[in-house]
Amino acid sequence: MQRIILAVLLLCIVQAHAIYVSTSIGDSRLQSDNRIYKPGGILHWSLETGFFNEPENLFDYKLAIGIDRFGYSHSDGDESVSLWELYFKPMVWSVTYYNVMFEFAPYIGWMFSANGITDYDDKLIYGTSTIKEQITLGYEYRLGYQINKQFLVGITANYHQLQYGFHHMPTADDNDDFFIGGWGINFQYNLPW
Results as ranks from 00 to 15, higher is better:
residue 2 Q to C: 14
residue 144 G to Q: 02
residue 106 P to F: 10
residue 168 H to Q: 09
residue 13 I to G: 05
residue 144 G to S: 06
residue 100 V to S: 07
residue 133 E to S: 10
residue 128 T to F: 04
residue 188 Q to Y: 09
residue 141 Y to L: 07
residue 103 E to Y: 02
residue 95 V to M: 13
residue 50 G to P: 05
residue 37 Y to C: 02
residue 6 L to R: 08
residue 106 P to D: 13
residue 150 Q to G: 08
residue 185 I to E: 14
residue 53 N to T: 11
residue 71 G to R: 02
residue 31 Q to H: 07
residue 39 P to G: 03
residue 58 L to A: 14
residue 128 T to M: 04
residue 85 E to C: 12
residue 95 V to S: 15
residue 1 M to Y: 14
residue 116 G to I: 00
residue 160 H to V: 02
residue 126 Y to K: 04
residue 142 R to T: 09
residue 55 P to E: 02
residue 185 I to K: 07
residue 67 I to K: 07
residue 70 F to D: 01
residue 61 Y to Q: 09
residue 69 R to T: 08
residue 86 L to T: 11
residue 108 I to Q: 01
residue 76 D to C: 06
residue 73 S to N: 02
residue 149 K to E: 07
residue 60 D to G: 05
residue 163 Q to L: 14
residue 154 G to V: 08
residue 129 S to M: 11
residue 192 P to A: 09
residue 28 S to A: 15
residue 169 M to C: 15
residue 135 I to T: 08
residue 1 M to F: 14
residue 79 E to H: 10
residue 128 T to V: 03
residue 87 Y to V: 03
residue 19 I to Q: 01
residue 121 D to H: 06
residue 172 A to F: 12
residue 97 Y to H: 12
residue 29 R to N: 13
residue 149 K to L: 11
residue 128 T to K: 06
residue 137 L to E: 06
residue 124 L to G: 00
residue 8 V to K: 12
residue 126 Y to Q: 05
residue 108 I to R: 03
residue 146 Q to D: 10
residue 64 A to F: 14
residue 143 L to K: 03
residue 95 V to G: 12
residue 182 G to D: 13
residue 101 M to A: 07
residue 59 F to W: 09
residue 138 G to V: 06
residue 7 A to T: 04
residue 85 E to Y: 15
residue 54 E to K: 05
residue 7 A to P: 15
residue 130 T to F: 07
residue 184 G to W: 01
